[in-house]
Design a protein around this nucleic acid. Structure first.
Length: 930
RNA sequence: GGGCGAGUAGUUCAGUGGGAGAACGCCUCGCUUACAACGAGGAGGUCAGAGGUUCGAUACCUCUCUCGCCCACCA
């Protein structure tokens, strides 16, 4: 027992403020944990591993509520498992976020009137690195504020040397396998970012526009037109045909005819294709293969050559006659104007359709034909489908499994090349001497590896193996950011340098061998396709293993109107503001307790008051307790637990079991709410109140025993709280620690000293604490006290007025217990004296009546009671009881119920009937005698 | 067009085949030596609607309505 330290702590505590000051404690403890190296582990064969890789936030990111929720969940799992004795690793890191980061720096240099093209590739990339080094750690600092217990010594960045090598390795492996190809294909083009996007990077939005019906003249058929419908009339300049359904009789007259494309006067063929919907529009479709996916495919089938009419910035190009140089949306208006002047617009209808937008800059995306790199996804998807179907990977909540499978089963090839500069440059090289260039008119996928003068390599090749040429240039494009993200679970652990196989000697043990596959992936639904599905495919392809066992998908954080939180809407609640005002623990606990499994979270700022109030409650309970402790001197033991102790220990046991179950099911809100209920309403409202008398006792042994019990329960609660509220739990625990060795000893247990609560052990159920008898007994006692309080309140007895109490009934043990503990119980109900009778007695004069715990309760209210008022009160009760009894009796009169219902339920119902009858009878007697 | 989720107290939401709950808000009382960011008590609900299964449905099934989200070559 360290008396000095204990005394000092007590003095500190008496100075503890009555409101919890999160700012004072959070930074202090985070530094303590980080400097103490408590987040860092090395593989340990004596423990089971538990590993999570963080969904790496964008390096440009600032912490928003989605991050806060996502990382709080991860931290809860991590801290829980760490306390459970696993060898726990949480790998943090950031994502280079190709387009997003490039956009940020482009905006920056734009202030100086520069574009990236003014700087040139090399200088621009240098600028981005500078930006990254200066601002790129913002989000990881913010994660620390949240309390995230990541192993910062293992922090990674997707453009790190090792991770970059993983990207090259993966690309080359797929390339050599023939899974990567180059194709001249319609992709999604962002004219603002001037790059291709994958299908997943396009956000579709319903937009009100128009459906224009354009009249195309039939050649050599005076006055005859074919009317086509389009939402994007500007693309008509790139039309190469008009398609109709093969069975469409309306267009039989077109056989052998051709059509004249207005404005441009190009001859268009008529093609017949099944893809045309007879019902839609006029049944005739203009075909613009260079600017529409469906059209492109029709054109392929009919061997039509696409005509590109826009440049990479979305302006009309030289194929657009006098519209050249005009923005596509202006061209849309102008073209309609011109067509109208020639009477070639049949009609214009308002029309709502879904328009694709760039997920990074929200510009309307243009379907655009261009040479791009693709990954064939079907072969990669097959094993990923199997693993989920076989349950090797569990996706939770399970409904997301269906979404995943649907996407995987309909997967399309992945466009991985981007025409930006920030990212991993494609490791394909061309010999300027013998490479013939992309084949302009080829619309077939190209297995580039078979072509002359094309090389793939991690390093720049010096000599062309085909011709010996020395002028070798690298492909200009970089890879999609997600091409590095999909490797994250193993690239962050050192793949491809590290080996997946467990080495014989411990010294060889590396992260990949020990921690991979990781345990759980915690993520939001938005990136199920972008990231989760692709990680599964990459994991299986490159490591032969699943990347994780469980995928837990939490909801999206929305504002109180159900909208996504976003800067542009101005509806975002800044988690750092909440941390500043209420503390990280309050933020975490509030977020978790209102997030039920997989359900979206509707937030408003005032919801955090919930968590703030709870931290304050915890703080004050601890402050009260600790400041009343003396040094636990002397040889004292606890031979038998009192009724109260048995009750609280039994319930503590149950709490531990229930919380474990909830956490295992990822029901974090349930775990949090169980803890809240126990701490506030069992520990504070009853247990501390009941223990006050002993804690104030002059008798040293009495005080010590009460202290030990309170300390023990509080210690357990702090442990259970820690994953949810790491800061306040640590702060209090450190103050409590000097008492723990002795307290555990008195409880017949051993305290394992650790430097931090985060390293302490997670509470286990203790078999000896199981005590259903005390639990039942105590619940009756609580019911009795609540009944007394209720009566007093209903009869407006002033709280200061103490009243005598008479308990009557045959439950002798309960009566004895009540009597035995009356010194503790009476203050809680403002009772001044107690009499008990096991034989029935007449109602004492001037008393109010109630029933609870199978006992009759008389409260003596001489001079206070108004008998008329009491009569009314009891009659109201009688009515209520009568109604309840009728319901139960109705049930019991039903033969089907008696025959078919679960016998236990029938028995319970019968017992209830009995109990109601007795209560009612007693009540009637009382009322009649009033 | 397909799929998913939600509709429960004034508000925000848990929840379960047999007693309808919590938090906040509201009302009454109380600054009782941890906490007024608190304590004690209370009011308040046809569990969206209609069918069905069942002895029994807020819960399971079907349909309808409202809201939200995702997916789809919606010219």
């Amino acid at each position: 027992m360290q008396i000095d330290e204990g005394t000092r702590e007590r003095k500190n505590l008496s100075r503890m403020e009555s409101r919890y000051q999160s700012k004072k404690t959070e930074q202090k403890w985070y530094d303590y944990w980080e400097k103490g190296g408590f987040f860092h582990v090395e593989p340990d064969l004596n423990k089971p591993p538990f590993c999570i890789v963080i969904p790496p936030p964008n390096v440009t990111g600032i912490l928003h509520m989605g991050h806060a929720l996502n990382n709080t969940i991860q931290d809860i799992l991590i801290r829980w498992k760490r306390m459970q004795g696993y060898c726990v690793l949480w790998i943090p890191g950031t994502d280079h976020a190709g387009i997003a980061t490039q956009n940020v720096v482009e905006r920056e240099i734009f202030k100086e009137g520069l574009t990236r093209y003014d700087l040139g590739r090399e200088k621009f990339i240098k600028k981005i690195w500078q930006w990254r080094n200066e601002y790129g750690s913002t989000i990881v600092k913010q994660l620390r504020k949240l309390g995230a217990s990541c192993d910062w010594e293992r922090e990674r960045f997707t453009m790190d040397e090792g991770l970059s090598e993983a990207v090259l390795e993966a690309f080359i492996k797929l390339y050599n396998k023939g899974v990567i190809y180059k194709g001249n294909y319609i992709i999604n083009w962002c004219p603002r970012c001037r790059t291709a996007l994958s299908d997943e990077e396009v956000e579709h939005e319903e937009q009100e526009g128009f459906l224009y019906y354009l009249k195309y003249p039939v050649i050599n058929a005076e006055g005859k037109f074919v009317t086509v419908a389009t939402t994007r009339p500007e693309t008509m300049l790139g039309d190469v045909a008009v398609a109709v359904h093969p069975n469409d009789e309306r267009y039989e007259f077109l056989k052998g005819k051709k059509i004249l494309l207005p404005l441009i006067n190009r001859e268009l063929q008529i093609v017949r294709d099944d893809a045309v919907d007879l019902e839609f529009g006029t049944g005739a479709v203009k075909i613009t293969p260079a600017h529409d996916v469906a059209d492109f495919e029709i054109a392929l089938r009919h061997n039509l050559k696409p005509v590109v009419i826009m440049d990479d910035t979305g302006k009309m190009n030289e194929n657009a006659i006098h519209f050249k140089g005009m923005d596509r949306f202006k061209a849309r208006k102008e073209i309609i104007k011109e067509l109208e002047s020639q009477d070639l617009v049949e009609k214009t209808e308002p029309y709502v359709n879904s328009v694709g937008h760039c997920y990074r800059c929200h510009t309307v995306v243009e379907p655009y034909i261009s040479w791009q790199w693709f990954v064939k996804m079907k072969p990669l998807a097959q094993p990923g489908i199997k693993m989920v179907k076989d349950g090797e990977i569990k996706i939770l909540p399970s409904r997301w499994e269906k979404v995943y499978l649907h996407w995987m089963e309909n997967i399309r090839d992945w466009c991985i090349s981007r025409q930006i500069w920030w990212g991993h440059r494609i490791p394909v090289y061309y010999c300027e001497n013998c490479w013939e260039g992309d084949k302009e008119n080829s619309f077939e996928p190209q297995d580039v590896s078979k072509l002359k003068g094309v090389m793939v390599s991690k390093e720049q090749p010096l000599v062309c193996p085909d011709c010996g040429g020395k002028n070798i240039i690298q492909d200009e494009d970089v890879l999609d950011t997600w091409f590095s993200s999909w490797l994250w679970p193993f690239s962050a652990m050192g793949w491809p340098k590290e080996d997946l196989k467990l080495q014989a000697e411990n010294s060889q043990l590396n992260d990949l061998a020990y921690f991979y596959p990781t345990s759980t992936l915690v993520t939001a639904q938005e990136i199920l396709f972008f990231w989760v599905a692709r990680m599964i495919m990459a994991g299986l392809e490159f490591t032969g293993e699943v990347p994780f066992r469980d995928v837990y998908i939490h909801g999206t954080v929305r504002d109180d109107k159900g909208r996504k939180m976003s800067k542009s809407l101005g509806n975002a609640i800044d988690p750092l503001g909440i941390i500043d005002e209420y503390g990280a623990d309050a933020l975490r606990f509030s977020l978790i307790s209102i997030t039920s499994v997989g359900q979206d979270v509707f937030l408003s700022k005032d919801k955090f008051i919930f968590g703030r109030n709870f931290t304050n409650k915890i703080w004050n309970a601890a402050r009260f307790l600790i400041s009343n402790l003396d040094d636990l001197d002397g040889d004292f033991t606890i031979e038998n637990f009192s009724l109260f102790d048995g009750w609280i220990l039994n319930n503590l046991n149950n709490l531990i079991a229930k919380m474990n179950r909830a956490l295992e099911e990822y029901s974090f809100n349930e775990a949090a709410n169980l803890l809240y209920e126990f701490f506030w309403h069992q520990f504070c409202d009853w247990y501390i109140e009941l223990k006050k008398k002993d804690l104030y006792s002059e008798d040293r042994d009495v005080k010590n025993r009460a202290s030990v019990m309170l300390i023990f329960v509080l210690d357990n609660l702090l442990r259970l709280l820690h994953p949810f509220m790491p800061f306040i739990s640590e702060d209090i625990w450190q103050k409590l620690k000097v008492y723990l060795t002795k307290s555990y000893e008195v409880m017949g247990l051993q305290f394992q000293d650790t430097n931090s609560l985060m390293l302490a052990s997670w509470p286990k159920e203790v078999r000896q604490f199981k005590d259903e008898k005390s639990k039942d007994e105590m619940e009756d006692i609580i019911a009795i006290i609540q009944c007394i309080r209720n009566i007093r309140s209903e009869l407006n007895v002033p709280p200061s007025k103490k009243t005598a109490l008479v308990l009557v009934g045959e439950r002798e043990r309960l009566l004895a217990d009540f009597k035995k503990h009356s010194d503790y119980l009476m203050p809680l109900a403002q009772v001044s004296s107690l009499e008990v009778f096991s034989q029935d007695i007449n109602r004492p004069a001037n008393s109010a009546f109630g029933a609870a715990g199978g006992l009759k309760i008389y409260i003596l209210l001489e001079g206070v009671i108004d008998l008329e008022q009491e009569k009314k009160r009891l009659e109201k009760k009688e009515k209520g009881l009568g109604r309840e009894l009728k319901q139960v009796q109705k049930k019991l009169e039903n033969k089907d119920f008696l025959n078919k219902a679960n016998p236990e339920v029938v028995l319970k119902t019968k017992q209830k009937e009995q109990s109601l009858k007795v209560q009612l009878k007693d009540l009637v007697v009382i009322i009649n005698n009033l």
